[in-house]
Amino acid sequence: MKKITLLIIVSILFLGQPFAQTKKSSKMQQTEHYTFTLSDKVTRQKVRFKNRYGITLAGDLYLPKDSSGKTLAALAISGPFGAVKEQSSGLYANQMAERGFIVLAFDASYTGESSGEPRNVASPDINTEDYSAAIDFLGLQKNVDRNRIGIIGICGFGGMALNAAAIDKRIKAVATTSMYDMSRVISKGYNDIVTLEERTKTLEDLSRQRWKDVETGDAAYPAAHLPEKLTGNEPQFVVDYFNYYKTPRGFHARSVNSTTGWRLTSALSFMNMPLLTYIKEISPRPVLIIAGEKAHSRYFSEDAYKAAAEPKELLIIPNAVHVDLYDKVDIIPFDKLVDFFTKNLK
């Protein structure tokens, strides 16, 4: 990938260009919409629960219709970074519930239907805590075996899921798909190409942006998030993101990536807080890392696999790109996920 400054990389990661004031989408009025069809073998109910910081998280709880009177293994799922539970995480939950698990898909703090002000910000600490709050909730459900709970992280929430599994010993197994290490890519750029000078300049610009935000009483958003129309000059991975987030395939009005983009200063909290420092401490609990063969993000998964301790497994999906593992049910290896969690949640 052509070398570009960290500020532009940060802008791409937060899906826009730097430094314009808040933009609101008229599509934000949309409410009840899912990007997939609920299985006729599954029920879905809205739930609310609080994390350790007092933020109320919104989730959808998926249950197999034939689970009455049974105590089952459970999963918590979130991601991709900037998505909502009505998109990929809900699709995964629907599929895994159809296969016999109780599954909670949830919106991260400050996004979707979850609470938290200001809106559309992210934090490696708080978003890791969101997973533990989901485990709190699942462990209190009478039909959940609290000794049989695992988690799945998609895209940027793959890194958060690995971090959560390292610290929260109640998590018995963890899987990721199309994983991003958000702290690494935001601080070092794609393929770690960013120089110290570029990083310093980006931090100077973002630090000054804080004063601008305070002066105006509002936080800056990207000036031009994912384009409303492709020009043909975009990198392929941006085209792939567009084809998911900005088309009927994956658009959702509450999704950060479908609408305004992240607040620019969200990048700051990832700049010096490496997410995967303690990945080895997931062991002896198992890790499954899944990535597309042609995904621009593949190296994050491969490096996380190398850093993790046994038991661990890396599964590369032939010909798949990053966003294929968001919603393409004929490509996402659900049978493998079922085998992994069935074996390890017992």
Rank of each mutant, 00 (worst) to 15 (best):
M1E: 14
K2M: 13
I4E: 14
I4Q: 10
I9S: 15
F14Y: 07
G16Q: 05
P18I: 11
F19P: 02
A20V: 14
T22I: 13
Q30F: 12
E32K: 13
L38A: 04
T43S: 02
R44T: 07
K46N: 08
V47E: 00
V47T: 05
F49P: 12
Y53W: 10
Y53M: 09
A58E: 07
Y62R: 01
P64C: 00
K65Y: 01
D66H: 06
L72R: 05
A73L: 04
A73S: 02
L75Y: 00
P80A: 07
K85R: 10
Q87V: 09
S88T: 07
L91F: 00
L91W: 00
A97W: 03
E98F: 02
E98A: 09
E98L: 09
G100A: 05
V103S: 01
A105C: 02
A108H: 06
Y110M: 13
S114H: 02
P118Y: 15
S123Y: 06
D125H: 15
I126C: 15
I126N: 14
N127C: 11
I135C: 10
D136S: 02
L138M: 08
L138R: 11
N143S: 10
N147M: 06
R148M: 05
G150H: 03
I152C: 01
G156T: 03
A161L: 01
L162E: 02
A165D: 04
A166G: 05
M182W: 06
V185M: 07
S187F: 06
K188R: 14
G189T: 14
D192S: 08
L196A: 03
R208V: 07
D213E: 05
P222Y: 01
A223R: 00
L226N: 07
P227C: 02
T231I: 15
N233P: 11
V238G: 12
V238A: 13
F242C: 10
Y244D: 03
R249F: 13
R249Y: 04
F251A: 09
F251R: 11
N257T: 12
T260Y: 13
R263Q: 11
L264C: 09
S266W: 13
A267K: 05
F270Q: 10
N272I: 03
M273T: 15
I289L: 03
E293L: 07
K294T: 01
H296S: 15
H296Q: 15
S297K: 07
S297N: 11
A304M: 04
A309D: 12
P311Q: 07
N319Q: 09
D324Y: 01
Y326P: 09
D327S: 06
V329A: 04
K343G: 11
N344W: 03
K346N: 09
